[in-house]
């Protein structure tokens, strides 16, 4: 699809621009690019460099010679592997739960609701997202704690757990709430672009609504689903505030361990190495996911 439409677009924009403004536009890019380069690219490179340093166990000073010790420590320690595995599990479960909520939501707004309501319905999705992360997480403490809001509202229902705070469930709820909006948006976009006639064509050719969903609607909205999953999974995997505030000691994630290296443990090289491993794990995870989801094959 893109391969047929892009060259045309490029052609027109090439003819439309005045050659003398090329330099001016380039100059304008310099300040923001310099900022990004100095305060993001270089620092990230420095993280990589630091990850090969070590801390002298006696003096507590950093030794600036190349060593793979930090990485060895991570791989050889069952504790860190366990934490990575736990992080992975929590992120996967949260992503799955979020998808169950986000898909019908994005579909309902994009493909069922009349277009004139799109702006309003999306605004209602975005408002919670723009509201302070800390405040929202704090609110869940109040809702989920024993004798909390949920308790006072539904405490009379037998069989409901009274204490959800500091459990894995609370962490999942927190993640789903915090990042659900950014999963809904791409799903909405793909559902809105769905050609209704394709659904009608499928039904016309004998497919029941259920079969139509699996053979037409789902594959055509898959790009939105994939984008939503990526946008949800990455920040969830790297989070440390939510498990810190809502989880118990058994729910700490990689982000917490990294944060600790810069606070309590004060081992920057090890924290840097953990960050690098986390980034690599996320990249590999996403690569596997993309291969599995095979979005290109849909529009190939």
């Amino acid at each position: 699809m893109a391969t047929t439409s892009l060259p045309v677009e490029r052609e027109t924009s090439r003819t439309a621009k005045a050659p003398r403004r090329r330099l001016g536009g380039g100059l304008m890019l310099l300040p923001p690019l310099a900022l990004l380069f100095i305060f993001l690219v270089l620092p990230l490179i420095l993280v990589l460099v630091y990850s090969f340093y070590t801390l002298n166990p006696i003096t507590g000073l950093m030794q600036q010679d190349f060593s793979l010790q930090n990485y060895k420590d991570i791989v050889n320690s069952s504790l860190y592997l366990k934490i990575f595995w736990r992080t992975f599990q929590i992120a996967i479960v949260a992503t799955a739960v979020a998808l169950l909520l986000a898909y019908p939501m994005g579909y309902a707004i994009g493909a069922v609701a009349p277009p004139r309501l799109h702006g309003l319905l999306l605004l209602l999705v975005i408002i919670p997202f723009w509201t302070s992360y800390i405040v929202r997480t704090y609110a869940w403490i109040g809702i989920l704690q024993s004798h909390g809001f949920l308790d006072s509202l539904l405490g009379w229902v037998p069989g409901l757990p009274t204490e959800l705070l500091y459990t894995r469930t609370a962490v999942i709820i927190g993640f789903v709430h915090v990042y659900l909006p950014i999963m809904i948006l791409p799903i909405f976009a793909s559902a809105r672009n769905l050609d209704r006639r394709l659904i009608e064509a499928a039904q016309d050719l004998g497919a029941s609504p259920w079969r139509t969903f699996w053979r037409v609607t789902f594959p055509l909205t898959l790009p939105g689903i994939v984008a939503g999953i990526v946008l949800f999974f990455i920040p969830t995997f790297g989070s440390f505030v939510t498990p810190q505030l809502l989880g118990g000691t058994g729910d700490l994630m990689v982000g917490n361990v990294i944060a600790d290296q810069f606070g309590e443990a004060f081992n920057w090289p090890f924290g840097a190495a953990l960050s690098i491993v986390m980034t690599i794990v996320v990249i590999i995870g996403m690569a596997i996911f993309f291969k599995f989801a095979d979005v290109d094959a849909i529009y190939g």
């Binding site: 006639r197 394709l198 064509a201 499928a202 016309d204 050719l205 055509l220 849909i298």
Partner: peptide, 13 residues
């Protein structure tokens, strides 16, 4: 019945 749609409505995937 079977319908041939305006703009064809072929499944792109």
């Amino acid at each position: 019945t079977s319908m041939v749609f305006q703009n064809y409505a072929l499944f792109p995937h």
